[in-house]
Simulated assay, not measured.
Amino acid sequence: MSPVFAHGSLRLYLLSLLDESPKHGYELIQALTDRSGGTYSPSAGTIYPRLAKLEEEGLVTKTSDGRKTVYEITEAGRAELAARAGELDGIEDQLTDSVRRIADEVRSGVTAAMKSLRADLASAAREAKQSAKPGPSWTSTTEEQADQQVQGRLALHETDVSINEFRQAVRAELREHVARGGALDDDTVSALRADLVAVRDRLRERLQG
């Protein structure tokens, strides 16, 4: 899988997240997951050493809030962000490109998995036919039903993949839009819901027809 952040970029991006508001480690991990549309979810082992380094450099401070440790950017941290504002813009563009690249890789993986599934199903169908002994109960209708079952399973899997790809793509677009400060009003949400209901109704009519 392609890396999301180039060397040193994650450190600066963490500073920008803390500039928005103080956060504990899990909130930073969740923010990175959300802004990458779910394609990147860093481990604690990735985040906390960088936070410790930022604290050591005087760019963030940490305080205990019950059982959680909350990190907050310092004035020195804000000064570094201001001095590297252009670089931060480049990281935002890099993040967008990385998310798209990872999504392409996921789609390629799904395509390969689909080809493998087709081959497995075809092989299973052939083996079933070869092992079945012709007899009074074995008819051409039985063979057709077996073929239909195999094709039905394959088609159902393909629809599951398509639905998941659609969901991930829409989710990534919405989260990226909101992360960049875009508005997501009730009218947009209602319109999206209405469109999805319309698609479902058309599918239902097709299946029943």
Rank of each mutant, 00 (worst) to 15 (best):
S2I: 08
S2F: 03
P3N: 07
F5Q: 02
H7A: 12
L10Q: 09
Y13S: 06
L14I: 08
L14C: 04
L15N: 02
L18T: 05
L18E: 05
D19R: 09
S21V: 13
P22I: 12
K23T: 09
K23A: 15
H24C: 02
G25M: 14
E27A: 05
I29P: 06
A31W: 05
L32G: 05
L32I: 08
D34G: 06
T39R: 03
T39E: 08
S41Q: 07
A44W: 10
G45T: 03
I47V: 15
I47W: 01
Y48Q: 04
R50H: 05
A52G: 05
L54V: 12
E55L: 03
G58S: 06
T61H: 06
T63S: 07
S64R: 12
R67L: 08
R67W: 03
K68W: 01
T69F: 00
V70T: 03
V70M: 01
V70P: 01
V70L: 07
I73G: 04
R78M: 07
R78S: 09
E80H: 09
E80W: 08
L81S: 06
L81F: 03
A82H: 00
A85M: 02
G86N: 09
G86W: 01
E87M: 08
D89L: 15
G90K: 00
I91V: 11
D93E: 10
D93S: 14
D93N: 10
L95D: 02
T96A: 10
D97Y: 00
D97W: 00
S98A: 15
D104N: 10
D104I: 13
V106G: 00
R107Y: 01
S108L: 14
S108Y: 07
V110I: 15
A113D: 11
A113G: 14
R118E: 10
A119R: 10
A119Y: 04
A122K: 11
A122G: 11
A124D: 04
R126E: 09
E127N: 01
A128V: 04
A128G: 00
K129I: 13
K129M: 07
K133G: 07
K133E: 14
G135R: 03
T139Q: 03
T141D: 13
T141A: 12
T142H: 08
Q145S: 12
D147I: 06
D147P: 06
Q149P: 00
V150I: 12
Q151Y: 05
G152H: 04
R153I: 08
A155M: 11
L156P: 03
E158C: 12
E158L: 12
T159I: 11
T159A: 11
S162M: 14
E165T: 09
R167L: 13
R167D: 14
Q168G: 11
A169E: 11
V170H: 07
V170N: 05
V170A: 14
R171E: 13
R171H: 08
R171F: 11
A172W: 07
L174Q: 09
L174N: 06
R175N: 10
E176Y: 06
E176V: 09
V178F: 00
R180V: 13
A183G: 05
T188L: 14
V199W: 02
D201T: 15
D201N: 12
D201F: 08
R202M: 10
R202G: 08
L203Y: 06
L203G: 13
L203V: 14
E205G: 10
L207K: 00
Q208F: 08
Q208R: 11
